[in-house]
């Protein structure tokens, strides 16, 4: 195969694509620990299961400074059986804590929306704690074009 200029260009473009695709943003060890710690403090050791909670966030956020996120948890919201709290965590932020919503039976539904800052492309986690201690979790990856933590 003769390496013409055109072919060389095509090859290098392909290599770049591969390099970009192959790069998975690894979770730094410290961040993982902080996430685990926050989770443990919130759940009190109960293992989170998926279901009942739906986290809604954009797939691609152009501006990491304001990313709309909403959460909705299926629950009758009565005095005996309601969602006590929902915590948001952002794995890739300098500190993973984002917000904790506290609901009461007067909330009517466990649905809420806010806007958050994301430093880079990462997973956003929402964990719901029910009044009976059960814990539900949902995760969503948000691709961030411009990070939102200043610098």
């Amino acid at each position: 195969m003769i390496l013409t200029r055109r072919r060389a260009l095509a090859l290098s473009a392909g290599a770049t694509t591969l390099a970009v695709l192959g790069f998975a943003p690894g979770r730094p060890q410290a961040a993982t620990e902080a996430v685990d710690q926050a989770l443990k403090a919130f759940t009190g050791g109960a293992a989170p299961v998926s279901g009942r909670i739906v986290l809604d966030a954009p797939e691609i956020a152009e501006n990491g400074n304001t990313v709309p996120v909403s959460v909705s948890v299926e629950s009758p919201m009565t005095a005996d059986d309601h969602v006590a709290a929902v915590m948001f965590l952002a794995e890739g932020n300098p500190t993973p804590a984002v917000a904790t919503f506290h609901f009461t039976p007067l909330s009517g539904t466990a649905v809420a929306t806010t806007r958050i800052r994301l430093a880079r492309t990462q997973n956003v986690i929402a964990i719901a704690k029910m009044s009976n201690g059960a814990v539900f979790m949902d995760t969503k990856q948000v691709k961030v074009t411009i990070g939102g933590c200043g610098g």
Binding site: N65, T66, V67, S70, M77, A90, N93, T95, A97, V98, A99, T100, F101, H102, F103, T104, P105, L106, S107, G108, T109, V111, A112, T113, T114, R115, I116, R117, L118, G148
Partner: peptide
């Protein structure tokens, strides 16, 4: 709060955007 009864509360960290916006429901 509604007539003194808690309805909704939120603890916020620095990861909340400027001009914090919250949307929630009440019965």
């Amino acid at each position: 709060t509604f007539n003194g009864q808690p309805v909704f509360a939120c603890d916020m960290a620095p990861a909340i955007s400027a001009n914090p916006y919250l949307e929630f429901t009440a019965k």
